[in-house]
């Protein structure tokens, strides 16, 4: 594998095939836990952990799995890592785990993860799968960070819990409510499409 393909394999997850902004995958956690940066970050990291390890496992045992039971096998692998992540958060980051609620266990059904196993890890080498998983999870994490930063700053006037807006600022409560998640995501998707069409044309 040349350096160039490694770079391309990694970078595609950041923009061209960004799971949230371009593929519109994993929108449930994207909308649900981005009310504050800390929960968005925790969700992004938990998903990163699950995606990377699942991709590693799936790509290393891909030849052994009969095609008929591949989805079942992927799900067992993914669910194991999700449970580990969930237990870990509960044991060492209890408040964050409480704030994320059911959304950590729900990583099992995050389409990004199953989608990458089915579309990539099951037909590529371990190395390439690792790079792909890294790129995809970075893309997911970045999208969650952007979304949660906008929502927390406008919705509470804080960033990671620290006051960033002056006393004149009145928090826009709607931004930390579900409606704010939809509006912000809609605007971000619109901007992403606009940028995409501009770069394609030139």
């Amino acid at each position: 594998m040349t350096t160039k393909t490694i770079r391309a394999e990694y970078l595609k997850g950041l923009w061209d095939e960004n799971p949230v902004l371009r593929q519109l995958l994993g929108l449930c956690p994207t909308l649900a836990v981005t009310g504050t940066v800390i929960t968005g970050l925790a969700m992004g990291l938990a998903t990163t952990f699950v995606l990377i390890l699942s991709s590693l496992v799936v790509s290393s045992i891909k030849k052994l799995i009969p095609a008929q039971v591949r989805i079942a096998t992927y799900i067992v692998v993914i669910a194991s890592f999700v449970t580990i992540a969930d237990q870990f958060l509960k044991a060492f980051f209890y408040p964050i785990s409480e704030a994320l609620g059911p959304y950590v266990p729900l990583i099992v059904v995050n389409c990004i993860i199953l989608g990458r196993q089915e579309a990539f890890s099951s037909r590529n080498s371990i190395g390439r799968s690792l790079i792909d998983a890294l790129g995809m999870s970075t893309g997911f994490l970045l999208a969650l960070l952007v979304l949660s930063s906008i929502r927390e700053i406008l919705g509470a006037g804080t960033f990671l819990g620290y006051q960033v807006m002056g006393p004149w600022f009145k928090p826009w409560i709607i931004m930390i409510l579900p409606a704010g998640a939809f509006i912000t995501l809609g605007i971000l998707l619109g901007i992403a499409l606009k940028i995409e069409s501009k770069t394609k044309r030139s």
């Binding site: 039971v69 079942a72 096998t73 194991s80 580990i84 237990q87 870990f88």
Partner: peptide, 28 residues
């Protein structure tokens, strides 16, 4: 083969999870 693969994967992950649960149970 299908049964073998699924059982093995299930057993391995079950074993792993049992270990993790043992490590974290007390803290939780």
């Amino acid at each position: 083969r299908m049964i073998l693969v699924l059982t093995t994967v299930g057993l391995i992950s079950g074993g792993f999870l049992a270990g993790v649960a043992k490590l974290t149970k007390e803290r939780i």
